[in-house]
Design a protein around this nucleic acid. Structure first.
Lengths: 141, 141
DNA sequence: TAAAATGTAACTAAACTTGTTACAGTTATG
DNA sequence: CATAACTGTAACAAGTTTAGTTACATTTTA
């Protein structure tokens, strides 16, 4: 189970909201499409709300809707919102500082990590939620 | 603890080997620099050997050395060898196929995943072990 | 005031990574 | 040839993370 599919879920959730722009959607309805528990969805929506990608309303007749038009939400923002963390982890325990490699490798890896993060962000910023929605609508058999 | 630092460890291990080209290095010596257990290193070396990046010799006076020159080993190969898996995971449970989004979202995400993998590989292929080694040697105070 | 929704805390279960011990197999060397 | 010194690998424990679930306080509509 442990594999972090939050980004996948987030894109899914936002796409469902995008298909119903203007409407307020209940967490239970989204959960049904994602095939999970409504609480899992609400937790995820909390993160997306913090990133100001969605807006929720409590109370009866409450629900969630997009905070912006789908063509103004890039997948890079979504990725940043759910903060999947880094692509690879640095050393758990600190390396031996008596060894030249151990002393300097972390800086190298940290730099590498930043390059990869930028590269991933750049790739994702080329996609918008609108683009995803269009593929979905178009691919419907 | 659970965060997959195998790529970091692999780069570390290979850099240590690169610093001693031609010599056979014992897993215990590497483990000392990485600050972990020799068995962890040997497991990692097994993966690197399968990818033909290193060669090990058993028995007394055994050890491991690089299978190629450091300038002919890219970090993309290293990343591939330890197979950290994908940057994000697809859905755990399959989405609801009655919903248009649930029916088609996986294809979209899968495609996205491939794009990101390519992007990461492209970034990493710009770095060689030789390059890492030079930074390490140069940064020594 | 009651019903219906979100927000959130707490707990469980499953999966994964790392660390550790133990031991079989291999090889150099006295 | 016997021993010491390595690698390779299996098996297990411990810690962390994710997802799922239950429960309940809070908010809002009707």
């Amino acid at each position: 189970m442990a594999a972090n599919s939050q980004f996948s879920m987030a894109v899914h959730v936002l796409t469902v909201l995008a298909r119903h722009e203007g409407e307020k959607i209940k967490s239970e309805k989204i959960a049904c499409s994602v095939n999970t528990n409504p609480v899992v969805i609400r937790r995820l929506l909390g993160q997306l709300a913090q990133a100001e990608l969605v807006e929720s309303q409590t109370g009866a007749a409450g629900g969630t809707q997009l905070a912006r038009c789908p063509d103004q939400i890039t997948l890079a923002e979504v990725y940043g919102a759910v903060s999947c963390g880094e692509v690879f982890a640095l050393h758990g325990k600190p390396p031996d500082k008596n060894c030249p490699v151990g002393r300097n490798i972390e800086a190298v890896l940290c730099n590498l990590q930043k390059q990869i993060d930028r590269s991933v962000a750049e790739t994702l910023s080329r996609h918008t939620l609108q683009g995803v929605l269009e593929v979905i609508e178009q691919e419907r058999p």
